[in-house]
Amino acid sequence: MTQTPVIVADAIGKSFGDFAALTDVSLSVHQSERVVVCGPSGSGKSTLIRCFNGLENHDAGTLTVDGVALSQDAPEIRQLRQDVGMVFQQFNLFPHLTVLENLMIGPLKVRKLDRAAAEATARKYLERVRIPEQADKRPAQLSGGQQQRVAIARALCMEPRVMLFDEPTSALDPEMIGEVLDVMVELAQTGMTMVVVTHEMGFARKVADRMVFMEAGRIVEISPPDTFFTAPQTDRARVFLDQILEH
């Protein structure tokens, strides 16, 4: 196993017009590491992980993912995206395709597998997220929790090396959060490299190797979870934790 980190962000920045969404952000994520990113709304968490698969282009600093330096229009970006899976807050399943087709379309069209291989892959990961029986339904016929698990399976079908999660449980009814987190914990146990934006502190405590706390476009604190939850190094992290742990 190589010791070079999978993701290396070195002083990256990102502006939308005049507004600096990210400023001077540096972070390395190693193979099999689980990093949980938290922080108040608007602090740049989504922007940061969207830079990691090129959905946003950073405009300062350097960002290397899986050995590829990302720039405005790196031709390798498509290859890279196959190695970096992403799960969105709003699931973003393809409504015109069945669950199975949602999972197969990437392997078929992007990885160029044949139908049999693509379907085998799809069924394997549908099993992994524990909804093999929903294969022929449309996304709209599933509950939110099931849809998000399909979205996770869809990303896994590309056999990625890293998985990015952007608040995967924020759009879910409370009773469905558990089923999605269970799948993510299992995924962590298989050794997947994960960067997870979430406010689910129970999940963070259980799987995180490091906690990243962001505020106003900057990383304010990076600490191991034990330290972060019991004795945060910065006042701002403490205030933030007090607020969300109250509930």
């Binding site: 290859q79 973003n92 015109h96 869809r154 990303a155």
Partner: peptide, 25 residues
């Protein structure tokens, strides 16, 4: 927008995104 992003996130090209995700819908 999420549909385009999801398509791009699994590595689709601009053409594939149009052909398989956007146009059918």
């Amino acid at each position: 927008r999420g549909q385009r992003e999801a398509a791009r996130a699994i590595g689709m090209s601009g053409f594939q995104e149009m052909r398989y995700i956007i146009m059918p819908q």
